[in-house]
Design a binder for these strands. Structure first.
Length: 262
DNA sequence: ATGGTTGGAGCCCAA
């Protein structure tokens, strides 16, 4: 079971890329972020034509998440027990969507960016991460086999940044408080699949559009796939697919994926 | 060097 995450930075613009990538990579489940589409405009018919069911929670201009699931020959791959948002956490911003596919709980997150350390948005990011942690504590009791994936807007450690001096513990996306919040998610038994299988790899998932960052390999690994303790024994592979970042008019993020053995 | 690029809205904001 191949489960992927991709921040598409506008599904309206990136639908052709998503279609091309689905046809080539054939993931069973895909968690999307930054769809930037109201639900009425979500291209569910186009995705169904490629064999994918979809659930989505979007808004105009900003944010927006979706989960796609590939229909198999016997009509499987249903998206069940769909949850929109973090229960009990009031938020206008559409950043969280969960569903169960073939017995695996999929939790898709578009974590708050936070802008800069000390800003109002940074405070919102830390509040938001605390609410996510509280909910996942309960969610893991209900669904021990869980994959938490998405754009975390946090680079876990030095191996995940091109320049640790610039991306230091006072900088947004790498600050001590953000990494502490990620560590609290790890403490729930949610393991970073990519890092577990590739302890020494320097591979990024996001490159700024500016300063030719992709060409110069000035990236960060902020798109993560975390697997619960109960799924750890099934972990068969994890990676980042850089290729779509080389295509014309790309998203600034590359898809990150994890493979679970049946 | 406090820069630059993209997307979406609407004559700037978020990333």
């Amino acid at each position: 079971m191949k489960i992927a995450s991709w921040n598409v930075n506008s599904l309206n613009v990136r639908l052709p890329h998503l279609e091309q990538w689905l046809a080539a990579a054939r993931p069973d489940v895909v968690a999307l972020q930054e769809t930037k589409l109201e639900d009425a405009r979500f291209p569910d018919a186009a995705l169904a034509a490629l064999g994918y069911r979809s659930v989505f929670s979007g808004q105009k201009t900003y944010n927006g998440v979706a989960i796609l699931s590939r229909m198999d020959a016997s009509g499987g791959g249903a998206l069940e027990d769909v949850q929109v948002g973090i229960p009990g956490f009031e938020d206008e911003q559409k950043r969280v969507l969960a569903a169960t596919v073939n017995g695996v709980r999929i939790v898709d997150v578009y974590v708050v960016n936070g802008q800069s350390v000390g800003s109002d948005k940074y405070a919102y990011k830390l509040r938001w991460l605390e609410a996510l942690h509280g909910w996942l504590t309960d969610e893991l009791r209900r669904h021990p086999g869980l994959v938490l994936l998405g754009d975390f807007n946090i680079a876990p450690d030095e191996r995940d940044v091109h320049d640790p001096l610039q991306w230091n513990e006072d900088h947004i996306l790498t600050s001590r408080a953000e990494r502490d919040a990620l560590d609290r998610l790890h403490a729930l038994g949610l393991h970073d699949a990519f890092r577990l299988l590739n302890p020494d790899a320097r591979m990024f998932s996001w490159w700024d559009y500016r300063q030719a960052a992709f060409r110069r390999e000035l990236g960060l690994r902020i798109d993560l796939t975390l697997v619960s303790e109960a799924l750890r024994a099934r972990l068969a592979g994890a990676g980042i697919d850089r290729e779509p970042r080389t295509w014309e008019r790309p998203s600034d993020h590359a898809p990150a994926w994890v493979e679970l053995a049946v």
